[in-house]
């Protein structure tokens, strides 16, 4: 089937999308956007998190056809040109990235948290990121990064 959707503000079209295919697969394999990662394909790890009409979802759990005519924002769409979003810059500065596989999903999910809740408590950060697994960092640097991002967004 043919899929038309907006990704990171621009209209995209993909042909020969399989009807049972996930949005994650369509983004990575058809639209050339490999930022969103595939680590489990069963909703468990959050590394495929993208915004679908401004709501963060696991793109591996969305059928590509469900995104027809809708707006998707992936990790590739967080930065403003060359300028990283404060959430991205904070992950770099706090050392919250090791192998980096979990990072795209965490960035989108943390971005949404701070949009909705500019001053999250630690408990709120943990609850918000509970669906994003990281096997490298032990999460402490990720907590630092999110706190830092919230502070930076508050002053900017």
């Amino acid at each position: 089937m043919r899929l038309n959707l907006t990704v990171n503000g621009r209209p995209h079209q993909a042909d020969e999308v399989w009807e049972g295919e996930s949005l994650l697969h369509a983004l990575r394999e058809r639209l050339g956007l490999p930022g969103s990662k595939n680590a489990c394909e069963q909703g468990e790890c959050g590394s495929c998190t993208v915004y679908l009409d401004d709501v963060p979802v696991c793109s591996c759990m969305v059928a590509a056809g469900q995104a027809q005519g809708r707006a998707v924002r992936t990790v590739e769409g967080l930065a403003d040109g060359e300028r990283l979003d404060p959430v991205q810059q904070s992950f770099v500065d706090a050392g919250a990235v090791q192998c980096g596989f979990c990072t795209p999903g965490l960035l989108v999910q943390a971005h949404d948290l701070i949009e909705r809740n500019p001053e999250p408590t630690d408990a709120e950060i943990r609850e918000s990121l509970a669906g994003n697994l990281c096997r490298c960092t032990g999460y402490e640097k990720i907590m630092d990064a999110v706190r830092l991002a919230a502070q930076r967004k508050a002053v900017s």
């Binding site: 049972g20 996930s22 394909e41 759990m61 969305v62 059928a63 469900q66």
Partner: peptide, 26 residues
């Protein structure tokens, strides 16, 4: 029928189920 897909897509991704079609309810 597919709503959130959080049960159905697990089965499809892992080839455990292959329905004749999907009906999007969202």
């Amino acid at each position: 029928p597919i709503a959130g897909g959080t049960d159905l897509m697990v089965g499809i991704n892992f080839d455990h189920i292959r329905p004749s079609g999907l009906l999007d309810l969202t």
